[in-house]
Design a protein around this nucleic acid. Structure first.
Lengths: 158, 158
DNA sequence: CCACATTCGTTCACCTTTCAACTTCTTAGG
DNA sequence: CCTAAGAAGTTGAAAGGTGAACGAATGTGG
């Protein structure tokens, strides 16, 4: 059925790599999400907690957080509202720019983070990191890095 | 801030590989989705078209399609309704099992597929395949395969 | 200074996904 | 047979995501 007419098509090798990549992504998201569920968090929640916990003063501007987590401002706004209702974060006004807001990690958010992180990391190990050798993990990173870089530079173009 | 207490944590190498993987996924989905947009298709649409176009008689049972695309039956049902309204597929009764339905690729769906596929493939090349050497692509597949296998086997457990 | 464009974050309307309930049909056990 | 268990798909309500429009604040060039 497949013909080797020209550039546009993928070789079997390429197609296999590509489909595997797609599949791993989807299944991995599914699994990590599931492992986080008992703690009442989504990956999205978790990622925001990570970002805040690593940020200076445990706070970040909305825009920066949106950029860091690659979401639209709108989506982040909803997300933060939910997390605020859950008590994980709180909004705080920014004095230097009165349009701006900080999202601040609450004590409860921090505590949650500390409690959940080990489980999440274990999950990442179980379903990803520990399934490949350190060399393979190195190759993986090496292969993906230029792609990441390319995609970052593509962000928000035509 | 990081301490090297025990197993649970990730080394810098591991963390870097992991975060890169996450980032590539997200940006790649974003980019491919965007490249498909001018044709009025989502990745989800496209994947269903691919599955159907590769299937015997250009048709698949709902359940099989749901399994193949890793979505819930409910989600697929809504999805197919939308695609049916767009004229890309049609539902057809299954004679051997009167509970069952086939999703069938329409002529218009096939035509759309033929028109769009080259662009999508080009997009995959531009943002993924062509950014790494064949060797690296090989390593990538090799690293991801065991993970895919593991995740497949984990599907729908506790 | 003062318009004007821009940035920040929210909101609204609309679309997609999820989850549980439900109908219909099939299959297996007694 | 007949009933109970289960599978195939759909449905509807609630939750989550998207994109455009908006108000408020800031920055900028004349």
């Amino acid at each position: 059925m497949e013909t080797e007419t020209a550039m546009p098509w993928l070789t079997d090798e390429e197609q296999c790599a590509w489909r595997t990549h797609l599949e791993v992504n989807r299944l991995l998201n599914y699994q990590l999400e599931k492992d986080l569920q008992p703690f009442g968090l989504t990956m999205n929640d978790y990622e925001i907690l990570v970002n805040l916990s690593e940020a200076e003063d445990l706070r970040m501007r909305m825009s920066d957080l949106a950029a860091a987590t690659l979401q639209s401002k709108s989506r982040l706004s909803h997300q933060i509202t939910r997390m605020e209702n859950a008590g994980l974060v709180r909004r705080e006004n920014c004095e230097s720019d009165r349009r701006g807001l900080y999202t601040v990690l609450t004590d409860y958010g921090m505590e949650t983070m500390r409690k959940v992180a080990p489980h999440h990391v274990a999950s990442v190990r179980r379903h990803f990191v520990d399934l490949v050798s350190p060399q393979e993990l190195g190759s993986l990173r090496q292969a993906l890095s230029p792609i990441a870089e390319h995609l970052r530079s593509q962000r928000g173009k035509p």
